[in-house]
Design a protein around this nucleic acid. Structure first.
Lengths: 191, 191
DNA sequence: AAATTCACTTAAGATACCTTAAGAACGAAT
DNA sequence: ATTCGTTCTTAAGGTATCTTAAGTGAATTT
């Protein structure tokens, strides 16, 4: 189950011997969140890095008009956190909330820093995860800067259908940076 | 000079003994770019990570209308690359070009991977650099998603005056994702 | 089962920002 | 000094997207 899922994830990036994996795994704790529960609330310090074993989460904030603005989704098999708050151990400006019932394996900053010293391959793993997160973040920023909302919507629906199916329309609109009304309009127009 | 600048940079993040620093420094090569010269051209593989010792560069592409879209600036004392192309050694979708005469210290992917094994603290350094780059990237994405163009402009001018002074208006417009004409309009309106 | 809330749609008027086109100001090249 | 290219500005009309408001059906609560 979750242990096996994590092992498979790690195997894709580094070669870790059995005892190191066991030691790393023992440093994690498991936690379940119900729909709408918070993994992290704005104003608090993000103490943990989460491996989403199962479920779906979103990172969001409110704009000056009080409207939700979703900045990121996280889905099964992703390592997920608020990087800014976690790395710097400063107050978060964003909320992380479960959209579906979600199970995570989590590790605290202090524990992770210790592990880096004990098992350098875990530091390598997280270097690679951070690189991948950065690349994904840059690709999506550049894409969303260059394309108009219609293109953004069809890209999301076609390339990442898991989201379109599991996430309500109004959240997709928020993520695409358009109003739900306008998204409704777009969907009507083409097809 | 440049060696000292790099040493100061590294000292901020990790403790490296003299011989390790020398070894790392010997793996770098120095290169000068004239105004408008390319550090990386679209379609080619980004072979190097650059430490900008002096100067100013931009990463950009053209949109479907043939108009330049700047996605990032890089300035003195930053480690800079096209992360996607560098890490995956795949063809770049973006150009990196010197805006001013620019001097860099550069290291190739293969050399860097070797160094990671020889000097684990350099791997730690680049883990931290990647974390910082990710945090900066996320902060700016989230900011630019939430704020309108006027706010984005005043934020840029007030918080990062180095750019406003060294970068021509039309490049700032491109980065802010508005037309030069509209930027001109904005500047007029509010004094 | 009725009442209430939630997610989505429709439509009309408003606004932020774009497009085009032309001119002004400045520095670089002849 | 004159010409030329580059950057910035101005203005008119156009378009993408928002705001507000009201309506519908599905889901949840009472």
């Amino acid at each position: 189950m979750f242990k096996k899922k994590l092992k498979e994830y790690i195997d894709r990036y580094v070669l870790l011997d059995e005892s190191d994996f066991e030691h790393f795994y023992d440093s994690l704790s498991i936690q379940k969140f119900k729909k709408k529960e918070y993994l992290l609330e704005k104003g608090k310090i993000c103490r943990n890095y989460f491996f989403i074993a199962e479920g779906l989460v979103r990172t969001y904030d409110y704009n000056e008009k009080g409207i939700e603005k979703i900045v990121q989704f996280g889905i099964d098999n992703w390592w997920f956190t608020n990087t800014d708050s976690f790395i710097n151990q400063t107050k978060s400006r964003l909320n992380i909330q479960a959209i579906e019932e979600t199970t995570v394996l989590k590790i605290s900053k202090e524990t992770l820093d210790l592990i880096y010293k004990e098992i350098p391959k875990i530091e390598t793993l997280f270097r690679i995860i951070t690189e991948k997160t950065l690349i994904a973040q840059q690709r999506s920023s550049y894409f969303y800067m260059k394309e108009d909302s219609k293109t953004r919507y069809y890209h999301l629906v076609n390339k990442i259908p898991e989201f379109a199916q599991r996430v309500p329309q109004y959240m997709i609109a928020s993520y695409l940076d358009i109003t739900p009304e306008y998204l409704s309009e777009l969907r009507k127009t083409s097809e």
